[in-house]
Design a protein around this nucleic acid. Structure first.
Lengths: 336, 336
DNA sequence: GTTAGCACTCTAATAACACGAGTGCTAACA
DNA sequence: TGTTAGCACTCGTGTTATTAGAGTGCTAAC
């Protein structure tokens, strides 16, 4: 049995109705509202077929049909219409201008702001930082035995870590060491810097004498550069959806939102292009009834992060995919 | 009518029973379990008095009694027993050692970790930063037209802001300017620095020529230093309590948890000494059925932040107040 | 002042029931 | 051959009635 044009139209109508109503869709309602011009009996026959093919499910015998994840997948890849009106599109393009200005602002408020716009829980993932190239390094003395290592990358992103330094180094010598480091590290990626520092620690040359525990530094950098950050905004938004009226679900969802590693690996899957993960595709049990819609953004030379929203699987895909993509682009412009 | 010793004992028994059971406490149960050695009828009489005095409430005529906020307040100030066992006390003292090492770590994981220990939603407030004294200032060049202003304070806390600088300043001249700034600003509080910078901007002397928009800098600092940060951990914990089984309550709670300003002003009330805010005392509508238990911690010379937990009003006060105080002390030691 | 006894109140749980939305199937129709 | 009207059937939802039980307040006796 194949999915002909009429089946697709019916499926689309069911999905769009269900997204709005969160109620199993019956044949009678559909024949009246969808404008397909066929009777409920015909639709019933088609629905029976679609159910057999796995696109629809019935909560119980005398209920209407509910789209399956497979149906949403089909919808997203094959029959999703244009989502936004021109006005909404315009709004999205200029949305960040008055709200987010730089990377720091994005981290602090980005997720919140996106969630305000979309009314869905929002996620923001920082660009992968171990691939950033060092453009400049400086050591800033910070009281006895400590120095602030400031690493400026080619995208203008600044990473700093407080280091323990041995002995009584005055400002000038720290400054000199900083310049030396700067010369040697310039152009390397943060990952290479890390490896180099590990090398230094092993060989114990002139610099190693100065910075006690340079391996420590590398270790600290590893933590800082690998553990990219993800922020969450509008966590409460999910609670507007009756799917999460049950506390135990809400709890599982909220708990998972606090598991940074989990969120990072989720968002990492999506940093190349706009993408949609439906239900089980997320790979996260607590999100198995959720869909995640993401879009990448770029900072500087090809470093990409991602923004996204998460909601029940009956999320308005057409609308939201387009919106996220636009927001990602707007963000890229803003941050370059 | 006064609250005599027996009334107090009965009230205490009711409160402690209710905290555990979340069920209105009846006279019969109480006379059997509390070990007061009086009959249920006697207890009923006392309960009637306590109800009249506003310490107890009845959800309905044929239900047991529930403690009022007034009762909890009395309990906290007058009749709260020792909360922790020696083992728990020991655990609290050493709790942070393997988990949080510095201010940065506290911000990143402190709330999470406290919530794991207590099973309540946890809050961490950073020390007020406008009172910090500058011990050192440095300007770090960061690509064209920008410099990183690093301000090290006497508590070792580091604030940095990216500034726009005019013209083509090379590293050396920026370094020199940094040293000049450092000399002038040392020992001032961040607030004073801010005011000084505003003054510079107005007078336009040598330095003003160098740093374009120095008022801008002051403005940026204002944002950075005034808006102290608060982090939330274990938001989902509140959902374990049947008081929050209703979604609308959960939603209001979660939404308020994302309102940083609200949380900051809440925690600011409590940074002097360990404190307990019960229900309406929090001053926050969404928290009017919650209690907040906080304790201060110190970083360096008298700068205090606060940690806290938030739960339903039937939170185990005795246990939690002591625990928070200990954790605050442990944290102070760790961060000094 | 304390306690036993008792009538009364009110919630929560259970069961019975009617309603209605929706289905699948059959037979007639174009 | 595909479409549609009609109809019997299913099953969840909401309503109502009923009951059991916990707890109270009051009175009278101790």
């Amino acid at each position: 049995m194949d999915v002909d044009a009429r089946k697709l139209r019916i499926l689309q109508a069911i999905i769009e109705d269900y997204i709005l109503s969160n109620t199993p869709v019956g044949s009678r309602t559909l024949s009246k509202t969808s404008g397909l011009g066929v009777s409920s009996a015909t639709i019933r026959n088609e629905m029976a077929d679609l159910t057999e093919m796995g696109y629809l499910m019935q909560p119980h015998v005398s209920a209407g049909r509910v789209p399956s994840e497979k149906a949403y997948r089909l919808y997203v890849t094959r029959l999703m219409p244009e989502g936004l009106t021109d006005a909404e599109r315009e709004r999205a393009r200029t949305f960040f201008t008055s709200r987010v200005h730089d990377m720091e602002g994005l981290l602090a408020q980005g997720a919140e702001v996106i969630s305000e716009l979309t009314h869905y829980t929002a996620l923001v993932l920082t660009p992968r930082q171990s691939d950033l190239k060092v453009s400049r390094v400086q050591l800033v003395p910070v009281g006895e035995g400590r120095a602030l290592l400031v690493i400026v990358t080619d995208s203008g992103i600044i990473r700093d870590t407080v280091l323990k330094v041995s002995g009584r180094l005055d400002d000038t010598s720290l400054y000199t060491i900083g310049r030396m480091l700067s010369e040697r590290l310039q152009g390397l990626t943060l990952r290479q810097v890390r490896e180099l520092l590990y090398g230094y620690a092993a060989h114990s040359d002139a610099d190693a004498r100065v910075l006690s525990g340079i391996a420590d530094l590398a270790g600290q950098m590893e933590k800082q550069t690998e553990s990219d950050r993800v922020t969450v905004g509008g966590a409460h938004c999910i609670l507007y959806y009756p799917e999460y009226a049950e506390v135990s679900r809400a709890r599982a969802f909220m708990a998972t939102l606090e598991d940074r590693d989990c969120l990072i690996s989720l968002m990492r899957q999506c940093e190349r292009q706009p993408s949609v993960l439906i239900g089980a595709e997320t790979g996260i049990p607590a999100f198995s009834d959720c869909s995640v819609i993401t879009a990448p953004y770029r900072v500087g030379h090809g470093h990409t992060g991602a923004i996204g929203i998460i909601g029940p699987t009956r999320i308005p895909y057409a609308h939201m995919t387009e919106l996220m993509t636009l927001l990602g682009e707007a963000l890229s412009e803003m941050l370059s």
